[in-house]
Design a protein around this nucleic acid. Structure first.
Lengths: 169, 169
DNA sequence: GTAAGTAGTCAAGATGCTTGACTACTTAGA
DNA sequence: TCTAAGTAGTCAAGCATCTTGACTACTTAC
């Protein structure tokens, strides 16, 4: 193997770029596409003045409906530990995007709610999502885009189903 | 892994209960699908005895062809800083997955090469990828799966094009 | 042969996550 | 009604991943 490398950089380059293609399986493609979307969205959000926006925070916000939610619900819903959720909420609260209120129904619990600033960001986010989607449709064509969404939704349904079976539901 | 999938289940539940539309845009779907694939793959790798396997390391290994590569090439190719690449390589070297050799052609440079252990992991990884893919095909159907891959490849091509334009190529 | 550029390293720090240990409150049940 | 168990949230410490800045060693261009 080293013989190849010692044989000259051109050969190595050739092997790298032509003979051994970069990964082209579904996992790699999904990862690349997801990263690209995240990067595009985050950049647009920063341009729109939401400098506090990060990927981790976005992932959490994706689980908070506009009407707000209980912190414990959020913990159940997101895939991370309650301490991680709490730390992210601390940051978002400091940024003024969210606020936490005591739950009048349960003295242990807290309600997480968007501030005005948070709702503004959601609105901008929706606009940016639509813009990116329009761009994707323009490049893929309506049909291929629809097929993409359809397949992704079907995959999601399959995962929920898998859990149902595991849980004996 | 299960935590994540459970999150997906709760997502569905939430839709039923509160009927507030949760994210259903392309970015969210891509993110969910990508995370699910990563989790499934990583779990299978750990079961196969590759306990050192993590997502960050996987992302780096995805850029290292079987014949190995120069560290600087790896730095160019991956989207992270050279120091981050180095730290990941340090870890993988400690785990015995990779080794670094001086480049006989360039005294500054180092060659990154898989060890026997690393090549074993690649082989298991390929097997697992195929298994997951077969599972996806079984659930989506050949046609929908092909449409998914086609759309993802088309998106990737568009991004490469965008970069080319930015670089003035 | 020297100035500029490239490859890699070392160090310090930020972010995002983890586990463990804890307080405060609610609920179930003898 | 007590009390034990469970739930909601917090505090603290630590790990993994990634960043920027400063540096050494080597190569290349002129």
């Amino acid at each position: 193997m080293l013989d190849y490398l010692e044989g000259g950089l051109n050969l190595v380059k050739h092997l790298d770029e032509k003979s051994e293609a970069l990964p082209d399986h579904i996992g790699w493609r999904l990862w690349q596409a997801s990263r690209a979307w995240q990067a595009e969205f985050a950049a647009a959000m920063r341009v729109a003045g939401h400098g506090w926006f990060t990927e981790a925070r976005a992932a959490l916000l994706g689980h908070i409906p506009r009407v707000g939610t209980r912190q414990s619900t959020l913990i159940d819903r997101s895939a991370i530990s309650k301490q991680a959720v709490q730390q992210l909420l601390d940051g978002l609260e400091t940024e003024g995007v969210l606020e936490r209120l005591p739950d009048p129904k349960d003295g242990r619990s807290k309600l997480v709610r968007y501030t005005h600033k948070g709702l503004d960001a959601l609105r901008d986010g929706d606009r940016i999502k639509l813009q990116i989607e329009q761009d994707y449709i323009a490049r893929l064509g309506q049909q291929r885009f629809a097929a993409l969404m359809d397949a992704l939704r079907a995959l999601d349904a399959r995962q929920a189903g898998a859990i149902d079976r595991e849980a004996g539901v």
